[in-house]
């Protein structure tokens, strides 16, 4: 059976199951009510895309910096990296957002909730990125570094020409997976009243009292962003599988 056929069958079966569940609860659909607020949902979707792209770029940079800290020979710098990664990964994003916005941002006089939201999200995702990058660098065998030294490369040339190109190929699938998580995690920014996609859906729900009609488009919207990323991740994984 070809893969596309298998995928289609599974999707259809899954949809049928969901449809069956909906038919059993005799839900009274009210799509017209939600349709009136389509502009709000679209705006929210746009804000989510914007926040995600900004946090994606920032978290990649933060992740690289933190990976350098984690690998540092200076115990103090290494400790900074380790504490950052463990605290962030060990606490809920919800708490980080609330403390980040109502305590830290207020203390330093940062009032733009969009900026704070992107920063907290980037710091959160950056901790996971750091471990991905560190793992990628650590996975390059010592013999590659030896070979690079043996042909007379400087440490920087060795990193740029030998280590980094291999590490990037290794981590790309995991990074794409982390991007998917980040996009979904951005929905939590609604708790600090950033009017992104999820908050828009919540508001539409409170105006129309049509819960499912408000939230089903939300699910579809996130899938629209995350499915291409997952597909790209698998593609990259296949393309760069050059070494047994």
């Amino acid at each position: 059976m070809p893969r596309w056929l298998a995928h289609t069958i599974v999707v259809v079966l899954f949809a049928a199951l969901i449809a069956l569940a909906f038919s059993r609860v005799n839900y009274a659909w009210n799509w017209a009510g939600v349709w009136e607020y389509r502009q709000k949902l679209l705006q929210g979707f746009g804000v989510t895309v914007g926040i995600s792209v900004a946090a994606l770029v920032a978290s990649t940079l933060i992740g690289m910096l933190a990976a350098v800290l984690l690998e540092s020979k200076n115990p103090l710098l290494e400790a900074v990296g380790r504490v950052y990664v463990e605290v962030i990964r060990g606490t809920p994003l919800l708490v980080q957002l609330l403390i980040g916005f109502y305590v830290v941002a207020s203390a330093v006089g940062l009032e733009n909730r969009y900026v704070v939201g992107v920063l907290v999200l980037a710091l959160f995702s950056g901790a996971y990125m750091a471990e991905i990058f560190r793992g990628g660098l650590a996975a390059i065998p010592q013999t590659q570094r030896d070979s690079a030294r043996a042909i007379g490369l400087t440490p920087w040339q060795s990193f740029r020409l030998v280590i980094l190109p291999q590490a990037v190929r290794l981590v790309l699938p995991a990074v794409a997976g982390q991007f998917v998580s980040l996009i979904k995690d951005s929905s939590l920014l609604s708790v600090i009243a950033v009017s992104e996609f999820t908050l828009a859906a919540q508001e539409v729900n409170s105006f129309t009292y049509s819960t499912l009609e408000s939230y089903l488009p939300l699910a579809a919207g996130y899938l629209l962003l995350t499915l291409p990323l997952s597909a790209m991740s698998r593609l990259l994984e296949r393309r760069y599988r050059y070494e047994a």
Partner: peptide, 13 residues
């Protein structure tokens, strides 16, 4: 000078 190790000398990328 030139050096060759037991294995994995080449850069796989």
């Amino acid at each position: 000078v030139g050096t060759v190790f037991q294995a994995y000398n080449l850069f796989p990328h």
